[in-house]
Design a protein around this nucleic acid. Sequence first.
DNA 1: GTCTATAGTGGGATAGAC
DNA 2: GTCTATCCCACTATAGAC
Lengths: 235, 235
Amino acid sequence: MSEVPAARLVIVTDSPARSPKAEQTRQAIIDAAMGLFRIRGYDKATMRAIADEAGVSIGNAYYYFSSKEHLIQAYYDGINAEHAAAAAPALENATTFADRLTGVLLAWVDVAEPYHEFAGKFFKNAAEPSSPLSPFSTESETTRLAAIDLHRRVVEGSDIKLAKALRAELPELLWLVQMGVVLFWVHDSSEGQQRTRALVQQAVPIIDRALRLTRLPGVRGLVDDVIGLIRAIKP
Amino acid sequence: MSEVPAARLVIVTDSPARSPKAEQTRQAIIDAAMGLFRIRGYDKATMRAIADEAGVSIGNAYYYFSSKEHLIQAYYDGINAEHAAAAAPALENATTFADRLTGVLLAWVDVAEPYHEFAGKFFKNAAEPSSPLSPFSTESETTRLAAIDLHRRVVEGSDIKLAKALRAELPELLWLVQMGVVLFWVHDSSEGQQRTRALVQQAVPIIDRALRLTRLPGVRGLVDDVIGLIRAIKP
DNA sequence: GTCTATAGTGGGATAGAC
DNA sequence: GTCTATCCCACTATAGAC
């Protein structure tokens, strides 16, 4: 259940341009950090210990990651890349909207599971608006757009029929749903995060039904207003 | 616009039992902290500076507040008390559901405004499950229940007609809406948080309409499922 | 460009005397 | 309840090796 994924996280940030050797060092630091985060927790995994474990000097660790938080950012990027990979089967095989969305959301829970224990520390920093780690920040725009794109594929490959305007906003709305799942997941201390999985499995059919109801005559006007509001508040 | 409220915040936590002298010291620390937070920002308002400003030693400051974050919690409690007071006129005078909800939500924005700049610091606690400051934690249950109670009064004093089960869950749902508003507000850098105010004013009528639609035949079954889900995931 | 070693700063938090 | 002294750690600075 709580195994580290066999494959290494392959990180895709754009910090210092890579030589093979540099890449190796960089990866060693990330591996050491992730290992220590899991064993000791975020606070007790000191930069000294991480550098030590990776077999480099503190100075060198800071050469690659300008703060302890940036180390987390690397981890965050890794989860996103893994998520895209883990979601691929669902996006290839499932045809109904509900199955596709469930597949993508559960894939995230699977991918994130090994890091659940210290994830709180990470999301804590992410929740602060001034932090570059915030999912709403410009710094994490690339990551965010990639995640939204995943949900664009959920919608586009599905059978669902919706008003054009709603369909256009839906990927972003589903990304917000995913953020909600993450918030729930962070607080979920059940074995293997079973409660989060149950939430996804029960919530998705409801979302699916709600979306189909938007074509109902009495509801359509309301949906237009919601769309209008969304567009008004987007920066 | 950004004035500190003239009246001192009277804090209602339950940390060390009060002697008059203790109360005085405690309040001096809070006053110093709030002043420095606003002038220098959270990070630069060091515990040393706060203790200094309050005329006590660092050790003494930690005697009253076991961490810098707990200093913020005291603050948070103060905002909630102020919010209840500021919401009272709306709860006494407004009769429609929409007006009552708008009044309560805008009262929060008014009360919180002077501290918008460093508010992000305490908001990030929401995301960290292990923190006693999390709005979902058992430690902040009293505060949370008081806030939910405010929304219970929004519902009870209003003209809205809803299915019994939905009506029972509504105060908690409205509290979640308020958390959403807080999330938006924290990221809102517009002058006087005008965008948040606009959001509230546009979103409330939509919520109002959506709630009234729940009595529609095609929608009723969906609402029952949502209620079922909510009850299933509540711990 | 990659890396080491080391010395130093500042601030959150604590121990223990009074 | 209050203080002083101290610890620990993130982070910086620097000087230089390969």
